[in-house]
């Protein structure tokens, strides 16, 4: 099992940023998600976030909403998410689950943390869990030995960043802009400042996500962040492909481009 710590250590040794790719479980199909994530890893993703499809994804833009909706129509359950994690972890990528809080709460925090660890998962990203409500989840995760990644945003004042990093392990997720997930023309101008402010409060790696979708953008972010997170752009490739093989090739191509980007410091 590859830990987040070892991923960032390796990237640092190679003087590059880590590449983090996101894909929801069950999209385009249960096994198709594992195949796509495997292609992403083979082409250079160091970390894979497996999204747990949820009915009310209020942080997500149209692309991820669409993928998640299809996944739910495919009947994706939490057991399938764990199965996907297991398949992806075997590739050697550090594998996380990105999930809204309610499915974990209903599944049971201890049980979720335990099952995720057994599947080879190394942690979670919980976009709607803030420090004030995260106590039980941090305790359950610590007991199971998995990381808890939390988010900060350009709107976060220093005192909020300070309280978020207190319960954040593995890496800190810095949202590049105010908004929802989805590829954009340019990466938010606030991202670099946010990373700088975050570093004043923590020594854990800081990764930047939201709106990153090209090699050039990855390179731009890699200049100041420890990791570059890409989600919607991968999903767009799969949604636009006429068949699975074409989709896989497109995903591989994008991952290759991004991997070159995070290496051009």
């Amino acid at each position: 099992m590859t830990t987040l710590a070892s991923v960032f250590e390796k990237a640092r040794a190679e003087n590059r940023a880590a590449l983090v790719g996101y894909l929801p479980a069950g999209f385009p199909t249960k096994e198709g998600a594992i195949a796509a994530a495997t292609a992403m890893v083979e082409a250079g993703c160091d970390v894979i976030e497996i999204g747990l499809p949820y009915s009310d994804p209020l942080m997500d833009g149209p692309t991820i909403q669409d993928a998640v909706h299809r996944s739910l129509l495919n009947g994706t359950r939490i057991a399938d998410v764990m199965h996907t994690v297991e398949g992806v972890a075997k590739t050697g990528a550090a594998t996380l689950v990105m999930t809204y809080w309610n499915p974990v709460y209903i599944y049971g925090a201890e049980r979720f943390a335990r099952d995720l660890a057994s599947a080879g998962g190394v942690g979670t990203i919980t976009p709607d869990l803030i420090p004030e409500e995260a106590g039980p989840w941090c305790a359950a995760s610590a007991a199971a030995g998995i990381d808890t990644v939390f988010l900060v945003a350009p709107s976060s004042p220093d005192e909020r960043i300070a309280s978020v990093v207190e319960c954040c392990t593995g890496f800190l997720y810095a949202a590049s802009l105010m908004g929802i997930t989805g590829a954009r023309e340019s990466v938010g101008s606030a991202a670099e400042g946010l990373v700088k402010r975050s570093r004043a409060h923590t020594s854990i790696p800081v990764c930047v996500g939201l709106g990153v979708g090209t090699g050039a953008q990855a390179a731009e972010v890699a200049a100041y962040a420890d990791g570059v997170i890409v989600g919607s752009a991968f999903i767009r490739r799969l949604l636009d492909a006429p068949d699975e093989a074409t989709g896989l090739a497109a995903v591989r191509e994008l991952a290759t481009e991004l991997a070159a980007g995070v290496r051009s410091r």
């Binding site: 809080w101 803030i130 004030e132 945003a153 909020r160």
Partner: peptide, 20 residues
């Protein structure tokens, strides 16, 4: 102060919205 009525309420939102 956290907006909880007993065990209910609270805030389950993106950190980006907390300052607002």
């Amino acid at each position: 102060p956290f907006g909880r009525f007993g065990e209910f309420g609270g805030r389950f939102v993106p950190e980006a919205l907390v300052p607002a």
